[in-house]
Computed example of a mutant assay.
Amino acid sequence: MGRPRGFDEATVVQAAAELFSTRSYDGISMDELVTHLGVHRNSLYKTFGSKRGLYQAALSWSLEHHVNPLIDRIAAAGDLAGALRVAAAEPAAAVGLDLLLLAAVERAPVDREVADRLAAVLAAFDQAARAASGSEGAEDDLAFALTAALLGLRLRARAGTADTDIDRAGAALARRLTHHHQGA
């Protein structure tokens, strides 16, 4: 009989998600993961198989606990400006969006599984945006713009750009899109 696991897998996966949301996958060594997570290298390999396995678990955890709840809140926001404000409502959303952004630019181009998962998440964001705007039909341009604005604002905030006023951006986008929608 093997020795009982000396760590809580969920806690390790959450901590890994937080770490992977701050730096690139390739920029984090196994030594750093071992140190940051406080788990022996052999235990990590035995549990997750590889660094990629741990990354996949961390991405899954983040999508389930940070991104999917955010998508649900966006869908329930009731309007475009409110949908953008939702992203700023809690710090946990920032971790999820940061990992999503890093996964999109770094892992998705080289990892088909990550690319497929992110495509599904972006489609869910678009669907939530359609629900928030009250345009569940063919308003794909509106949903696409809202999703792009949400991720763009998170990217600006992550880059430390001073001008990331989500309320201002949400109101401006809502005015433009609503005006354009009404004029169509």
Rank of each mutant, 00 (worst) to 15 (best):
L100E: 12
A149Y: 00
A94P: 07
L146E: 01
E113W: 12
V105N: 08
F144E: 12
L151D: 13
L59S: 08
R112P: 12
A120F: 13
L151G: 12
L146G: 03
R154Y: 11
L59G: 06
A128M: 00
A128I: 05
R85E: 08
A120I: 13
S62N: 07
L84Q: 07
D111E: 03
A89I: 02
A88Q: 09
L153S: 13
T161Q: 15
H40C: 09
H40W: 08
L122H: 15
A87Y: 11
R158L: 14
R85N: 11
H40S: 09
K46W: 12
H66M: 06
L44P: 01
A103H: 06
R130Y: 01
I71Y: 02
R52N: 10
V39T: 03
V86D: 00
G38L: 04
G96H: 01
A58R: 00
L150H: 09
E136C: 00
R112V: 13
K46H: 15
R73W: 11
A88K: 09
R154A: 15
L99F: 11
L80Q: 12
W61M: 02
P69C: 03
N42I: 10
L146V: 10
F144V: 09
A149S: 14
G82L: 01
Y55Q: 02
V67I: 15
L59Y: 11
A159T: 07
E64H: 10
R154E: 15
A129P: 05
R156W: 13
D141H: 08
L70I: 06
A81S: 10
L84G: 03
L101T: 13
G82R: 03
A128P: 03
R156S: 14
K51A: 02
V110S: 08
V86I: 11
S133V: 03
V114S: 04
A88F: 00
F144Q: 10
A145Q: 04
A89D: 10
G49N: 07
G160Q: 05
L118E: 11
A92C: 09
A94Y: 14
L146C: 06
A145D: 08
A115R: 06
A115V: 04
L151A: 12
G78F: 14
A76Q: 02
A131Q: 10
A76T: 04
G152N: 08
D72M: 02
D126R: 08
P69L: 03
A131F: 04
A128K: 01
S50R: 02
S135T: 07
G38K: 00
R158E: 13
S43I: 06
T161S: 14
L54E: 05
A119C: 08
W61H: 13
K51M: 02
L99R: 01
L97E: 11
F144T: 12
G134K: 03
R117F: 13
